[in-house]
Design a protein around this nucleic acid. Structure first.
Lengths: 372, 372
DNA sequence: TTCTTCACTGCAAACCTTTGCAGCAACCGG
DNA sequence: CCGGTTGCTGCAAAGGTTTGCAGTGAAGAA
């Protein structure tokens, strides 16, 4: 039913190669011929078959985006930013969700491999070794993880966690807890290390609870543990867990921030909607999406050798940069002074969130260019 | 670099067709040969090129899912359900986001057309005529919209809106407002019609405000209008708008539900997290995702004719069913009795949500099978 | 022994497109 | 009038796979 290039050629009385050129190199064909061909194509509803084109050009003009959990509101801004950036470069993004399952992750990248020019691996749960292996099959940019030899875009959650801990120390807290995220998460490691160091150097004690599923339920399930541990302030792996925890504490009759302070990570839209509004470490998710697409497509314009070897596909790994994006602590209403010293009952509604305008572009390249 | 079928054939000393059969019809090849071929394939890291396979079989084993806005928490459960169902049938789902833009929508389905076996059009914003047109290019199942002659899965928001209005009437409200959704939304029409009828037959007045963007901001922007209109209860197009409205009213010093009652639609996870918890119309989004995939793939097993015509691709339209899924009103804390009669200050925390277990499968086929 | 059947494998066409090369006509400068 | 350039078009190979058909050898039946 769908018209092929041959149908158009027949209808317009030219060779198929002329039709092909009409679409992929219009300047090579006579204007008169061109309009005739275009008219026929229009009439027949012809659209070039991208799969067939990909077979020979080696370019699909698609990129894959693999993420752990679409339902986590952390991802949509990243997805949208990546889509927008890709669209500018005439690429499409296919999103796939792995349900936090490393096996599904691997299967997906294999399924995607031949249908896309590269994949963005976002917050991968699989091992570094496996990532390196799949990166030999298809160009990969890793988001939210550092793996040597591969292009990565990371968010400096270590710095964020440190800022959060220091904020809590400044409020007088000395008994702190960290709600760990999922096993296999690089972010989790970074936070743990940085938070631990910050707490130690502030003379405070940090209890680590976890690993846990990085969801609201994961957070609320920890409420009793948090209560029993006697801590007065908590840093959660992400906002969802923080919100879940607040919810769970509420059920136990523990108030936030009067009795316990809670800090999240991500600054998802939701964190502005809950009561109390969440103090959190804002991560530049949109910038991460844009940057990752740029890195994957940086060699876009390079010509592809015909015949000889396979395509020097997009994202040729001759220079692999590693980019670290900055995070920022946004102070809202879920943190307050240590219970003992608080002016009871009143939450300081004072200065409100002291946050700079949306980071967007202040991307800091720490890794620079690394030869591989 | 990536190994092709030819490399494997050479390595294992057989013809490429044997290699091909080893993967797509193992019973046709000698067990000994098979293990040898598999071993070589394993060693070379060979994976069949799905694009090339699709070129000849006419089946990509991919399905496209086009949605208006990934950031809307309404969609993720649907996406996940569709992915799960597809995986069972050995299909992959590619998700794409249109940013609520009808033009992007059309472009996307064209881009997807040749790379998938069918597309799920979820809450489309384009015209019915356009949908019918693209459905001639690629099999389509429409979600959240009724278009005659095409398979559709809908949620009965009309019934939901009616139930919501009746709930509000029961609480004594007579001045009602409906916060409209985006232009081009079928759901919007259904709600408007049903809510209008229910209000009329209850002797109440219904003001329609809109159209509006179906987001939290869209809701909060309407706060002053709602105040000035003097209504005492509001039904919003979706939960996001409802939550935004509550937020906006809060800034104006108007309390929910004491001063104004608010009902949302969708029952997104978030609606259980805000304070007050949202009264809302629960929609069976997961079931919708599953059902849509099933409908698209129902002719999966049919053999494809070689040569002759093009593939009788998936979702052959010989019988096109239209399925209507039921919705359910979930009463929580954002609705209360008419201000005049209320016991001031206390929100009835009483019976809590009186909701049946997650609907899941109670899917009701209203349309039955329709010849096309 | 001869014929049939069977299990397996090879051959080659087909899917739809891109692209290097060659052909061809018209035009230009000399 | 000739050699060269320019602008356009056709030819055919290539890309990786599937699959109908035909061929092979061996086993079984008559």
């Amino acid at each position: 039913m769908p018209a092929t290039i041959r149908d158009v050629a027949r209808a317009s009385g030219v060779h198929i190669s002329t039709v092909s050129r009409t679409f992929s190199a219009p300047h090579l064909v006579n204007p008169e011929t061109r309009v005739r061909v275009l008219a026929c194509a229009e009439e027949l509803g012809y659209r070039p078959n991208r799969a067939a084109r990909a077979l020979i050009t080696g370019r699909t003009h698609n990129i894959g985006l693999i993420i752990a959990d679409i339902a986590n509101p952390f991802f949509p801004p990243l997805i949208k930013a990546a889509e927008g950036q890709a669209r500018h470069r005439d690429y499409h993004v296919f999103v796939a969700d792995t349900n936090e399952d490393p096996a599904a992750e691997e299967e997906l990248v294999h399924a995607l491999a031949k249908q896309v020019d590269g994949v963005l691996l976002c917050s991968p749960r699989m091992s570094n070794a496996l990532i390196e292996q799949v990166s030999r099959e298809v160009p990969v940019v890793v988001i939210n993880r550092q793996v040597t030899g591969l292009p990565c875009v990371m968010m400096d959650v270590g710095q964020g966690a440190r800022a959060a801990i220091e904020h809590l120390l400044g409020l007088g807290h000395r008994q702190l807890a960290l709600l760990g995220g999922p096993r296999g998460s690089w972010t989790n490691q970074q936070m743990r290390r940085a938070a631990g160091a910050a707490a130690r150097s502030g003379g405070a004690e940090l209890t680590v609870l976890g690993p846990n599923p990085p969801t609201e339920t994961g957070g609320s399930a920890l409420a009793t543990q948090v209560r029993d541990s006697g801590v007065t302030a908590v840093l959660a792996y992400n906002d969802l867990m923080a919100i879940g925890l607040i919810e769970g504490l509420d059920h136990l009759g523990i108030r936030v921030p009067q009795d316990v302070s809670v800090v999240g990570v991500d600054d998802i839209a939701l964190s502005r909607l809950t009561r109390p509004k969440l103090t959190t470490v804002a991560t530049p998710t949109a910038a991460a999406g844009r940057t990752a697409v740029d890195m994957l497509l940086q060699h876009d314009s390079e010509l592809r050798p015909r015949g000889g070897g396979r395509a020097a596909a997009v994202g040729d790994r001759r220079t692999t940069a590693q980019v670290m994006l900055q995070t920022e602590l946004v102070i809202r209403d879920s943190t307050g002074p240590l219970p003992g010293r608080s002016r009871p009952g009143s939450v300081p509604d004072g200065p409100g969130p002291h946050r700079l305008a949306d980071p967007g572009s202040p991307t800091v390249t720490t890794g620079g260019v690394v030869a591989s």
